[in-house]
Design a protein around this nucleic acid. Structure first.
Lengths: 346, 346
DNA sequence: AGCATCGTCCAAACCGGTTTAGTGACCGTC
DNA sequence: GACGGTCACTAAACCGGTTTGGACGATGCT
């Protein structure tokens, strides 16, 4: 016996001998249905294997019961960055509890990204979106405002924003990293930053510079890169080619740091003996390379959970307040050590 | 002037002085509308900024215009694996062209994974799904069959499957790797495999074993692991602790290979001087560590594109045939070299 | 002139839920 | 015994599209 058509609310109503409305009320636990009738209806629904059609409910309620995420990254970077999968996993955990879905859009450049949001909004496929990788003077905030699409930003925008933010602060992690290196005796600490148009990139750079100044040291050289291994290698080459190369390099992510370590090594420069290296993200691999990588542990999955909760609350009309996340923690491993002393060269 | 409500097809019909039906026909380019009327309708739609409501269309057409993907991976692995982001990027590219959306579900264990598919099906949120990470005697195939949910599998299942498959063959890559090592003079080649219940894991292992036998060599030791850095390190430790340790290790992915290289190095074993190492996936980082990692290049983004096209065709009723993808290619780098000769030990 | 045919368009049904207005039945009250 | 108030439930409208059956006028043919 093959079930040809999935049962509808009408089938359930007929089976239970009531009207469609009664079934809807019973299912949604609303008052005005006698207990005995409710039981009969639920039994009939179970018997028929009925589940309310998401499509019909969406049309009726004028809601999508889904939230959206638009990822704009060049394809070669997508795989390297552990952030997204972890963030999405956190988001999912909350969405699953509340029977919502995640609609994903992956695009490869910024122009397409804005179209992505436009399409999600025009189609009414989602009730709200996440805004990641905030940029300087981010145009997407105004766009989402005029699209009337609720949103939650990860980080605090540098422009007026009507949206709640999940406040992640990378700075303490960088500050702690600088302090750690300074305590080891480093006086010449360079930085390989992320792309300049990202807010988190500039925040990390500012923290690096601020912490050095606070320690009474001049900020060393800083090279902007792109979070890729190739970019990290290139930046490292530039820094080591300087007349006065740094004794330590703080990278804006682990992948660049690992590539940087390799470059140093290829040049016969020992890590950490000749050069200290630190990363950011604390990817799983960081603890398992040699030497193990000092890094800053972040919690993208936790951010995802909080961002999802904030967004759903915003959509439901309540909430809409910023949430502060605990600061990232420095994890000290074997890639950092005191700088080589000039008169101790091998 | 704020637009309070998004315009509906009725608004457009009124503005153009025609019926709803006429607007629908005009928009969908169906015959039976005079050219002049069609122009007037399209002009009115443009004027009002009307876009058809995806929700209404979905209900009416009994289609979701979306496809689903359920990811079952422990959270700590999600970030390390470059496969998913790349696969998804490929999928997205095709979906965007055809105005479809991707509904993602991330769960952390297999039981939840099946519920994920059940929920996608029960809600009618998607018209079809991708089936990744095929397992031995995969129960999801029967499940999707009884849920009447069209699917495309990545790889060929080991059980009867009514679904088209995108055939990716890891074996030539592994075979080439073994041949490369044997040509270098290795006689003792070990393997660190993925979890045994994954079909791709066993396929790689079989290829490794087969290629060694073809070369007239006994298969060396094989340890199953979990694709994580920690797992790769552990497996490497086991192999190097053997009375007769291998001179080369083929890892089932790059992350485990990188962790393995670190373990060898910590033990004072030079790579590739004392131990040759190969990975699988050819992640971006592989070319930028030291020594650079010999690996097998795969094309997850290409698989995503083909899988998406195949699934959409299947949903549309045409197609449904398997597609063969080009085999993975070996990329030789610096982590492989001739084995140390016993009488040449330093 | 009468009739069939065609192109154009409209009204209404339909998808499967939610929600509102309204109908009885039953209760207690003065 | 007429009245007001609950309670349980139904009928129908509604969400915004697509699709079907048929109306209507213009045209072609005999």
């Amino acid at each position: 016996m093959v079930r040809q058509r999935r049962p509808t609310i009408t089938d359930v109503a007929r089976a239970a001998g009531v009207s469609k409305g009664a079934v809807s009320f019973a299912l949604n636990g609303r008052p005005g249905v006698a207990e005995e009738t409710r039981r009969r209806i639920l039994a009939a629904a179970k018997e028929l294997g009925w589940t309310p059609s998401h499509r019909a409910r969406a049309l009726s309620a004028s809601r999508a019961f889904a939230v959206g995420l638009v990822l704009a990254r060049p394809p070669e970077l997508l795989g390297a960055d552990p952030f997204f999968p972890a963030f999405i996993a956190g988001v999912e955990r909350v969405l699953a509890e509340r029977n919502q879905a995640l609609v994903l859009q992956v695009v490869t450049n910024q122009r397409a990204e804005e179209d992505g949001y436009r399409r999600l909004a025009a189609d009414g496929r989602v009730d709200g979106v996440f805004l990641l990788d905030l940029r300087v003077a981010d145009p997407r905030i105004a766009l989402l405002g005029q699209l009337r699409l609720p949103a939650v930003t990860l980080g605090r925008p540098d422009v007026a924003s009507p949206f709640p933010a999940v406040l992640v602060d990378d700075r303490p992690g960088i500050t702690a990293t600088v302090r750690h290196l300074v305590e080891l005796g480093h006086r010449h600490v360079a930085h390989v930053a992320g792309p300049e148009h990202f807010l988190h990139g500039t925040a990390r750079r500012d923290a690096w510079e601020g912490a050095l100044r606070a320690a009474g040291l001049p900020p060393g050289p800083c090279v902007s890169s792109d979070f890729s291994a190739a970019g990290g290698a290139r930046a490292t080459g530039q820094l080591l080619d300087l007349a006065d190369p740094p004794s330590a390099i703080i990278y804006a992510n682990d992948v660049m740091a690992m590539a940087g370590m390799a470059v140093a090594r290829e040049r016969g420069l020992d890590v950490p003996g000749g050069l200290s290296v630190t990363g950011f993200d604390d990817t799983e691999l960081a603890a398992h390379i040699s030497p193990s990588l000092t890094s800053v542990r972040t919690d993208p999955s936790g951010w995802g959970r909080v961002a999802a909760r904030t967004l759903l609350d915003l959509i439901d009309g309540d909430g809409g307040v910023d949430v502060e996340m605990p600061p990232a923690q420095l994890v000290i491993r074997a890639s950092t050590a005191p700088p080589p002393t000039p008169h101790q060269s091998p």
